[in-house]
Amino acid sequence: MGPDDDTLAADGHWAFGTGFSDPLSGLPMPPAGADLAALCLALGDDALIMSHRLQEWCTRAPELEDEVALANIALDLLGQARLLLARTGRDEDELAFRRGAGEFRNVRLAEVPNGDFAHLVVRLLVFSTWRLALLTRLRDSDDEALAAIAAKGVKEVAYHRGYAARWTIRLGDGTAHSHERTRQALAAVWPLVDQLFAADGNPRSPDPADLREEFDAVVGHVLAEATLTIPETAAETAAERASRDEHTGALAVLLEEMQSVARALPGATW
């Protein structure tokens, strides 16, 4: 706690939160090596692009309460993206707003266009379950900054996973109509799963087989509760084996919108 924190804490009107903390406060921040930078870039891009897809649900969610919940999740991921992109040692705004689609390292699961609410829920379940497994392991990273970012993310993503799991069960084990829509969503999302567990050759990345084991157990449990089954997918398609620098056309369209203001008004502040 520095002097500024004390001032903040003294402003004790209960309706405004106080005691905000900076997860990286006081941590050593040596220049990131190539492997650490690559890992942070990939994790940061996943969060940034997934956050943007969630933001697109603003004004479109079925209920106001869920709209705010989704906005919260999007903001959590945006916060993770900022910390991770900054940890690469490059400028976070340059990375977010000045790269072309081919330079992004996010997985396809994050970039594919939104579908219906069931699609959102299933996609978020897959994304959060995978990311929680990843961040849980990165809490033990020997880079203290990455470990702190991961520890912060674990608490956030655990909530995201719970939100998605509750909705998956509610919809899957709901009416015949909601079950069918969720089954279709699962069929649409599932071909994107294998890419999440592709080996990337980075010694700092957690073991994909270990992640997959946790992922299969958690998702299997949720889907069983939701009376859904994992869809049959054709063995190994190009999409499944795509590396993180091969994207669908949807990413370029997303970036055109996300980067439009930054590109139209370079250097603008507000």
């Binding site: 939160g17 919940a69 919260n72 509750r166």
Partner: peptide, 28 residues
Amino acid sequence: HVHVGSLHAADDESALHSARDLYTRRNE
């Protein structure tokens, strides 16, 4: 506990989660 507002929810558990999302966003 202080009354902060209201919300619509399908059941008690969803109400609690929505309340977390709607009314404790600013570390309150």
